[in-house]
């Protein structure tokens, strides 16, 4: 059955690669066009002269953590599209369950293929980011920073946690995996934003805070200034705690999803 998930993941990765590549190419091209066609205009726009603009002179350095963190957010899109892989078998009258393979083995195979696909997508996204920076002539400004590795680990952890939570939410459903995936985005974004809202009272805040402990976006954000960037959580946890929390929740969620799927009646 791994062949089915391999084909699914390959297709998802291809679509992802095309879309991400096209979007990054468009943005890069637009910026590049702006650089080469900049004009300095005076006298209400009637007199314009070419102007030399270079990104190379504007920014002293680009921290690697910013590139890896940005790539993590984009990779979450692919992670969520793959996340209902168990659910996709549930409406097929037992096609996957009447094969000479234990259900947990099928589930683990699916999850393994999905995880490798997420890693490939992440590596691809980072590569596309570097390619864009190279086109703009500022790839050389990317510098390693000590927080890059924690940001990458936290970003991949958050993507995998999101994947696991959707698996739990959909493993017992016969259909509707796509709906759960679609709703998870506004839900997690709004839940993260709602944590900062103070005007609904302490009770509301407590409920949102509790829900946000299962929100991957609550564990993964990065902030700082051009010289230093950190992994930050909504709750003020340390980077190590955030990374550990995302991976533990991801693993527990996947185990629970497999347990649910094993019991599913179709």
């Amino acid at each position: 059955m791994g062949f089915v998930e391999y084909l699914r993941a390959r297709h998802a990765l291809l679509v992802y690669a095309i879309v991400v590549g096209a979007v990054v190419a468009f943005i890069t091209g637009s910026v590049d066009y702006g650089i080469h066609n900049a004009r300095h205009c005076t006298d209400s726009g009637r007199l314009c002269v070419p102007m030399h603009v270079s990104l190379a002179g504007g920014t002293s350095k680009i921290l690697l953590g910013i590139v890896l963190g940005s790539a993590s957010f984009v990779t979450m899109i692919l992670a969520t599209t793959l996340a209902a892989s168990l659910n996709k078998e549930n409406g097929r009258g037992g096609f996957a369950f009447t094969k000479p393979l234990a259900r947990e083995r099928v589930a683990l195979t699916y999850m393994g293929i999905d995880f490798v696909t997420i890693l490939i997508a992440y590596a691809y996204t980072v590569a596309v980011c570097f390619a864009a920076l190279a086109v703009l002539g500022i790839a050389g400004k990317v510098v390693a920073d000590p927080n890059a590795a924690p940001i990458a680990a936290g970003g991949l952890g958050a993507a995998t946690m999101w994947y696991g939570l959707i698996q739990v939410a959909t493993a017992l459903r016969i259909s509707g995996g796509g709906l759960v995936i679609g709703l998870s985005w506004p839900l997690f974004i709004l839940a993260r934003g709602a944590y900062s809202i103070g005007f609904f009272g302490a009770g509301f805040h407590a409920v949102v805070a509790a829900l946000d402990h299962l929100n991957p976006l609550a564990y993964f954000a990065f902030t700082g200034h051009p010289d230093e960037v950190h992994l930050v959580s909504l709750f003020g946890y340390s980077a190590t705690t955030c990374i550990a929390a995302t991976w533990i929740i991801a693993i527990v969620a996947c185990v629970v999803a497999i347990g649910e799927w094993k019991q599913l009646e179709v």
Binding site: V4, G91, G93, G94, K99, P100
Partner: peptide, 25 residues
Amino acid sequence: TPATFETLAYVPERATLYEWMTVAQ
């Protein structure tokens, strides 16, 4: 057991193929 299905074929009431896969796949 899962091994039973090595020698058992099941055709369900409704076709449950993967609509996005080819016959060869």
